[in-house]
Design a protein around this nucleic acid. Sequence first.
DNA 1: ATGAAAGCGCTAACAC
DNA 2: GTGTTAGCGCTTTCAT
Lengths: 338, 338
Amino acid sequence: MKNVTLKEIASQLGVSVSTVSRALTDSYEINVETKKKVQKLAKDLNYQPNPFAAFLRKHKSNTIALVIPEISNNFFSLVIKGVEAACQENDYYVLIYESHEDFQKEQRIANHLMGGRVDGVLISVCSETRTSDHLKEVLERKIKMVMFDRVLNDIDVSKVTSNDYGNSLEATKLLLSQGCRKIMFLRAGLHLTTMDNREKAYRDALKSYGLNIDDSLVKTFPPSKELDLEELKAYLIDKKPDAVFCSVEHLAIACYDICKELNLKIPNDIKVITFSNLKVARLLNPSLSTISQPAYEIGKTAATLLINEIKGKHQEEGFQNIRLDSKLIKRDSTKKML
Amino acid sequence: MKNVTLKEIASQLGVSVSTVSRALTDSYEINVETKKKVQKLAKDLNYQPNPFAAFLRKHKSNTIALVIPEISNNFFSLVIKGVEAACQENDYYVLIYESHEDFQKEQRIANHLMGGRVDGVLISVCSETRTSDHLKEVLERKIKMVMFDRVLNDIDVSKVTSNDYGNSLEATKLLLSQGCRKIMFLRAGLHLTTMDNREKAYRDALKSYGLNIDDSLVKTFPPSKELDLEELKAYLIDKKPDAVFCSVEHLAIACYDICKELNLKIPNDIKVITFSNLKVARLLNPSLSTISQPAYEIGKTAATLLINEIKGKHQEEGFQNIRLDSKLIKRDSTKKML
DNA sequence: ATGAAAGCGCTAACAC
DNA sequence: GTGTTAGCGCTTTCAT
């Protein structure tokens, strides 16, 4: 079966291409009879408009790019779901790009996007990203942008984040209230705004308890899963903290593995809390206390914001800065005694 | 900054549009000097070709669709990652579509795809899908297709699956060898080939042990996460199996929750094994025995196959039927005694 | 080696 | 209410 085009329908019906085009977009100036005729034939032939022709004409693709560091990740995969939901509601499509926490790849993606493949981009930058020049170039090409979670400060776009500072403060204070005094903070990635906020809250919480801050208890590990377990193990053995606050899930998982190996009992010997969207945290041994980001909502909110911007709505309101609350769920890994 | 086009470059250089086009595709018939000149300016202006114009001309978009029932799922999110990897290697792009286990949505997606948005589609059908008419129509529009995991038998395309039968046989025999004689099999979704294969293996394994098959021990639950916990609980209480073989992860998670509630000890009172790509299965309480599908490889293999088909390679070989092995990992949830 | 021109399928301004 | 026409940006014949 060859592809059905407007021309095909037009010639079969003995009308012009533009009449068909108008009939199909339900233009008010078309005779009801003609309209029906055209619509019927289009349906019978299962006419599907060639999107590229329309895009070329209108310079609108109804497509957005979603650029994330890592696809297979409990947080980002929920984000994807939220984005997909918002797009399905608005008849938009999602192109996925994975930067693999690699700044060069992110740059290449940005470059590609400048070609006008998409009407807008949704991005959470990779951990190596320090400047926003590549993103600014995209903006200059009149492509809309919304950042989420890992945002950059020196760029003027709408942003959707979670309340990293507030929730980290809460988490640290929980550990303190359980009696912990030697709390380790594990960062993932050097230059991420999310990490900065989480660490700052950790420090402020300690200060608010009148404690001195031991910088050697704060350490950065690779953001991706290629974590050096031995290094982390040695660090834990060396420092012997009474609690570990992990800024990302895979660090907590690593701690669980290491504690098992070292025969350290959680929470008696050491307490653990982490940022995580792991659904089965409650079933771990012991159940893991988590700060759970509203990943789905972040994705959905960011995508809706972007689509509205593309449509030119809410332009007047300027750039939004939306901060959503995460949920701290206390479980056994932070219990006083088991 | 306005968008740079071929015309722009041509006029700045005083050459024709076609010369620029040829220079940029590195055509052999262009003077080396001109080529250099053009390429330099293109780079300076950061020229990015308008993809839609090229697509419209060539009827190739270098884009494939990935249609899956559910994005936020340990199996599918790894598949996405694999697909993305294969596409990045080949300079292809991925459009994500989520069918939400809803056949009507799947049909709508298929319809949309017929418009020629993509050169090919990668699909794992939803649990409600019983016929392949909607997919055949896509094929008729000369759009290539590869199915993976949840495939359909009555359609002629390449398929990538995992060895559901073999690995389920192995899993059931493991339970049998641990002394279980009243093994429950929990299906998810009525019409899935994957489920059929898994159930058949379960039955064959019982037969090979000379056991009678009690049909009331096989039951189907909804494939998505909207599982009725109470129904499953009542079923478990009623049947009192000594083992449960779950065909998907969320059923096993539900069993864990229910066992906790009913104070049934895994594996002493009841053993559990499941298909799952959960990374932290080893950290559950007790650690969960899993059949882990090679999700990343499935995605990568399927995408590579599709891209090759689009490129017209390996056409002669006809449709492939690739079956990859899953990995059975024995953990405490199927131990004889703890 | 380079240019002119057609055309991919669609939309929209402009006739009538 | 409908047709004519131009043009979106690119590739690709066909000239020269």
